[in-house]
Design a protein around this nucleic acid. Structure first.
Lengths: 157, 157
DNA sequence: GTGGCGTGGTTGATACATCAACCTGAATGG
DNA sequence: CCATTCAGGTTGATGTATCAACCACGCCAC
């Protein structure tokens, strides 16, 4: 058992990130759930649909936008349809139905987004200020690139 | 529908963070699952137990260390016990059993931790370098403080 | 046309997260 | 002593995530 003795500066900083990430995520999630009865998953789907032209898009497009597996999205849409937030509608190609945002869904997301945005500003953007936020985002982007490179290596094996 | 038109610099940076956070998390998680057949939840519990004196601690201590709800931990321990990673053992107070790391559990975490640590270094710590990592962690700490302040306000209402 | 493809979608099974309801047994006070 | 209390644990129900297996329809070859 040697690994946990060597918890250096860097590892403590890593743990700080993990803590922040978990707490921030669950805080935002709980707010959505309590105030708007929306899960994070609901929110993601609704945002994409609300951003689309006529509040309707092919399921595959939602999958691409959210980067979710088709199965996950299908289950999620089923639950959201049960609650009347969206509905599946046929498109010209019968294999690939579209998802349509219902009025109820539109109302929900229209109420939730401003508060969510406000909270993100209060908790992160305003806290860091423009300079530090920019450096923070750069760091995130670099990590993302490292991840992609890593993923590429794994796939090409 | 006005909110999504105002996606400024700051909001794009926020989305960068969200992306990074999601991808990094799922990458680490998938590695644990594929290579070591451990979920992130398993990993967290096992790490705490392995760090403890005789690989055994009161359930409440695990709950405190992980900051999980008692119910979540109880379910998790049940599943881990079924797989032989841990076992519940009676303590002097019959109300509050301890959790004991099994040999199998110890072996699993001892194999998983080094690789996990290595990956964190490769993907984050080495990518940013000491300077940027320090500033990154400071930013995380500041957000954490803002979160705590926010939480306090909410509770004291 | 008719019979394989292949892609995108659905379904089922299992693991995980969260909430509420409940149980248990030590401690306390009468 | 016995009854009450109550913190810590368990259980059940529901929602969510992931994997594997399956289905369905348009496409293409023949």
């Amino acid at each position: 058992m040697t690994w946990e003795q060597g918890l250096g500066e860097a590892d403590r900083m890593w743990r700080t990130y993990i803590e922040m990430s978990k707490h921030l995520g669950s805080h935002l999630q709980q707010h959505l759930q309590r105030e708007h009865a929306l899960s994070a998953a609901d929110f993601e789907v609704l945002v994409r649909l609300a951003e689309s032209a006529d509040r309707r898009m092919p399921i595959a497009d939602v999958a691409a936008a959210t980067q979710w597996e088709k199965s996950r999205l299908s289950h999620q849409l089923t639950r959201m349809a049960q609650r009347g937030l969206v509905e599946r509608v046929d498109s010209d190609d019968r294999r690939y139905p579209d998802v349509q945002l219902t009025d109820k869904g539109h109302e929900a997301i229209d109420k939730a987004v401003p508060e969510h945005t406000e909270m993100v500003h209060a908790l992160v953007i305003d806290v860091l200020g423009p300079e530090r936020l920019a450096r923070f985002a750069e760091a995130c982007a670099d990590v993302l690139r490292a991840l992609d490179a890593h993923r590429e290596r794994d796939c090409s094996l």
